[in-house]
Design a protein around this nucleic acid. Structure first.
Lengths: 164, 164
DNA sequence: CGTCTACTGGTCAGATTGTCCAGTGAACGA
DNA sequence: TCGTTCACTGGACAATCTGACCAGTAGACG
């Protein structure tokens, strides 16, 4: 049975597979095929295709930074000198505690997520970030809690819903 | 051989294991034991302990939202009415496109990461977020690029370095 | 009406898993 | 100092899963 969607798009089965893997990442190909009610080869083919297409990047371990001693998270919005985004980003990337950087529109130019062991440590990290050359102005906020942890599930469910 | 560190802390082997898994998440227990030069049972025990301790939450699939059609990412900083954080967070969580919410110190109260299919779609999502009750003021920026994608590796390396 | 593609259901050998076990050595307390 | 405890080793086991095949079937497409 061939499906009608563009090759580059998600298929309902793809979405269901991703959803299943979101809920229980340790599942093997065989178990997935059982749950989805399709042949094992199919699941295997789908996963291969999803990876080739780049939709499924892999299964990185989800490490709890707090449990490793990095209990503090902070966000910094950086304003930087014109045309220095790449430069600044590279220097930020060199800081271990910098866990994520986005270039954005709006008042700020870069949004940085960083972590630290303690308030003193955070001070150090912030200083390191702020001291990066070409950084003009910064505004930092500490994350007090994370009401919604990173998630994809609702989106996948929506995709399935729309597909039906 | 018993190790000297507190039970709640990471051990050098734990860190090396997490690092290994960060680089090649698909690795099985057996392969890990080979790479780390320890017995299989040891790796198995370590992984169990890491999970029990909460340091290793699991292996969620890394789905590329862009490849699923959600090519746009935006961040919103929300200012909300006093004492309504939980309430607002709950409503935000009900929006499929909201992928992450942090409560923060500073001018804003909540930092929201959301995604959308297109500019029009983003408009809709932003409206939904902004229209959440108790939200006073918002400021939104669109993510143009992600110079540093979410990562843990440097942190793990640092932990190992410090341990040595 | 053929061709192509995707899925099914099956097989196969080889690898991996979870689960045991006895033995070793280092740290710890009495 | 002598036991005890704990973590790791290296080995074993059956059960399971994996990757690689295969022929057969059924829509979609020209």
């Amino acid at each position: 049975m061939r499906h009608s969607v563009r090759v580059s798009e998600l298929d309902a089965l793809d979405a269901r597979l991703l959803l299943l893997l979101s809920d229980e990442p340790r599942l093997g190909v065989l178990e997935c095929s059982r749950r989805l009610g399709v042949a094992r080869g199919t699941v295997q083919a789908r996963m291969d295709r999803l990876e080739q297409r780049g939709a499924l990047r892999g299964f990185p371990p989800d490490v709890d930074l707090a449990a490793i001693g990095y209990g503090l998270t902070a966000f910094a919005v950086l304003e930087i000198a014109q045309g220095r985004r790449t430069e600044v980003a590279r220097r930020l990337a060199a800081i271990d505690e910098v866990c994520e950087v986005h270039a954005t529109t709006g008042e700020g130019d870069l949004l940085v997520r960083m972590v630290a062991r303690s308030n003193a440590d955070l001070q150090r990290v912030i200083d390191e970030v702020v001291d990066v050359r070409w950084v003009r102005r910064t505004s930092t906020s500490i994350a007090l809690s994370t009401p919604v942890p990173p998630r994809v599930r609702p989106l996948l469910e929506r995709v399935i819903r729309q597909m039906k």
